[in-house]
Write a protein that binds this DNA or RNA. Structure first.
Length: 567
RNA sequence: UGUCCCAUGGUGUAGUGGUAGCACAUCUGAUUUUGGUUCAGCCAGCCUAGGUUCGAGUCCUGGUGGGACAACCA
């Protein structure tokens, strides 16, 4: 107990509103001071960054206050669900670093939910409606107009009871019959206008097979499942606020003791340049517009994982955005900042050249090879160093050279000294062009006294270039992955086909690069001609050593601005 | 012509009724063998009108603006 108090003292100022509620409940001794949450995904798709926010609060609350968080699959609609999704969801939660107490399935509660439904019928609080979906919808009214009662609303209890049995035997066709709670067709809350709680679905369930024909609806299953499990704090997103009175209504009908779960809602995550709708993400996968749920451009947990994001970076991001009831849109640059911050400390650096042009050190001996030491990570000495070969002929990035450069161009241009990283200071003496004016070779002279580590190497030069030996290098296919969408808010215009807003396919470049095995940083270019620094991530699914250029964690494109200003 | 939720710099978030902080983004400067990092700094905010109060971002009321709700989805 004292431990909990200490935690709360320390974090008092940064408590989010859910934590405030939990602490108040704890202080009041609610539910015997027990804290239990649940993460309840429907297994109908892969988890995305929005789910990460829910996961962090569900598991985080349990962790922080000494409670447990269970994983529950809300599998009440067999048509959309699949074990593939169950497996991926578990994998992604584990990758984020969380452990659930138990794994539950709403489908485990089908018998108890059935009994509860029968009880409601017997109490006269539920009835079988034999109208069509259209008729029921029509009678529902609108938010500003009361609904009208179904002609079946007051049928005898026994009749409903026997029809309900038939709903589950297969003799009732889909859509011919539903079970409805009898509440209030004139309620200002649409969810109270005799909500449907059971419907017939003739589709095998991924866990219960063909045992059931009648399946409970979300509203009838969720709160009840919370109650069965002993959940104390049922945390979900804002769109369920209007469901809460119904959640409470069912709980009151169901509960037999002092305990009851309570629902609390927080704001869903919206990110610029990002579509989070599962339906749309599924569409991208099905239409092969991406390579799969784990395509590095996807906002899925596994997509980010393949892209090189760490679990820690996701946590940092979620910590920064907080939990409130305000519906906003978070700038994706905050996510990118969190990733850079984390990767900057961890990522080993290597040099790479994506668009090579030959640089010849004219006064360097033919055939000579020197081994240069390159620090793996300037932020972390313990990561050591690696050696790279320096030779007379090198490759540098084509855009690291300009024949007629503006003043603020700090890289290679005739007459200007630059440093070749980890090697010598060189001075450009000229270049050779073909008939079209395309640069073929660049010439420079090196100063032998300026090798890294020697006293002369401390001379100040404005630019430092990455380079690769023309003789000793490794070629790899590099993919430049951009943001999936090229507009700030692809959700804005709902009538527009969101697929039109997709960025064109990733750019594939054959390049010379020298690389270490894992996550590395390197100088590179994106396909918008902005020089950037970015993080490479070796695609773990690729045996051929492909690199994924992590464009969205790329750094400031200051060079592009310099050019704009100068011209 | 309904019910419910929400409103603090460009963005996101803190603020027991008592000096409105923080982060991202932008911009400026310093350091730097990554135009990265790091450091310093600039710019910029309580939707509105009343009320309660010695004192309101905070409490109350009315506006205004945004969002949710009319699936046999979750």
């Amino acid at each position: 107990m004292s431990e909990i108090n200490n935690i709360t003292e320390e974090n008092k100022k940064s408590l989010n509103f859910i934590e405030v509620i939990v602490e108040k409940d704890l202080a009041e001794g609610k539910n015997d001071r027990r804290i239990q949450t649940r993460f309840p995904p429907e297994p109908n798709g892969y988890l995305h960054i929005g789910h990460a926010k829910a996961i962090c609060i569900d598991f985080g609350i349990a962790q922080k206050y000494g409670g447990i968080c269970n994983l529950r699959f809300d599998d009440t609609n067999p048509v959309k669900e699949d074990v593939e999704y169950v497996d991926s969801i578990m994998e992604d939660i584990k990758w984020l670093g969380y452990e659930w107490g138990n794994v539950y399935y709403a489908s485990d509660y089908f018998p108890r939910l059935w009994d509860f439904a029968v009880e409601l019928i017997k109490k006269g609080k539920a009835y079988i409606d034999e109208q069509s979906a259209e008729e029921i919808a029509r009678q529902k009214g609108t938010p500003t107009q009361a609904g009208t009662e179904s002609p079946f609303r007051n049928r005898p209890v026994e009749e409903s009871l026997s029809l309900f049995q038939k709903m589950n035997t297969g003799e009732i066709e889909e859509g011919k019959m539903v079970l409805r709670a009898k509440i209030d067709m004139a309620s200002s809350n649409m969810h109270f206008r005799d909500p449907i709680i059971y419907r017939v679905i003739n589709h095998p369930h991924h866990r219960t097979g063909t045992t059931w024909k009648a399946y409970p609806m979300y509203d009838f299953a969720h709160g009840e499942s919370d109650y069965f499990e002993g959940v104390t704090h049922s945390i979900c997103t804002l769109e369920f606020v209007v469901h809460r009175p119904l959640y409470d209504w069912f709980i009151e009908e169901l509960r037999t003791d002092g305990y009851r779960p309570n629902q609390y809602e927080f704001n869903r995550l919206n990110l610029t340049y990002t579509v989070m709708s599962k339906r749309k993400l599924l569409q991208l996968v099905k239409e092969n517009l991406v390579t799969g749920w784990d395509d590095p451009r996807m906002p899925t947990i596994c997509g980010y994982r393949r892209r090189g994001y760490t679990p820690e970076s996701i946590h940092k991001f979620i910590d920064k955005i907080g939990y409130t009831k305000y519906d906003g849109v978070i700038d994706v640059s905050l996510l990118e900042y969190a990733v850079r911050e984390d990767l900057n400390a961890k990522a080993p650096r290597i040099s790479a050249v994506l668009d090579p042009v030959k640089l010849i050190i004219t006064n360097y001996p033919e055939g000579k090879v020197e081994m240069m030491e390159a620090i793996n990570n300037p932020e972390d000495e313990s990561m050591g160093s690696h050696e790279i070969e320096f030779t007379k002929e090198l490759y540098i990035e084509r855009e690291d050279f300009m024949e007629d450069a503006p003043k603020k161009f700090f890289r290679m241009t005739p007459g200007q000294e630059v440093r070749l990283k980890n090697a010598y200071i060189v001075k450009c003496t000229g270049c050779k062009k073909d008939e079209n004016g395309i640069i073929q070779e660049i010439y420079a002279e090196y100063d032998p006294m300026t090798r890294s580590g020697m006293p002369e190497s401390n001379r100040k030069v404005k630019g430092t270039l990455h380079w690769v030996s023309a003789e000793y290098n490794i070629q790899a296919e590099v993919r430049l992955y951009d943001r999936l969408f090229n507009v700030e808010n692809p959700n804005e215009d709902k009538d527009k086909d969101f697929r039109e807003l997709l960025n064109p396919d990733s750019l594939k470049v054959l390049t010379n690069c020298r690389m270490e095995k894992f996550v590395v940083t390197a100088k590179a270019y994106d396909n918008f001609q902005f020089q950037r620094l970015g993080y490479f991530n070796v695609d773990p699914d690729s045996k051929s050593g492909k690199l994924i250029f992590n464009r969205t964690v790329s750094l400031k494109d200051s060079w592009s601005k310099i050019v704009k200003n100068e011209n």
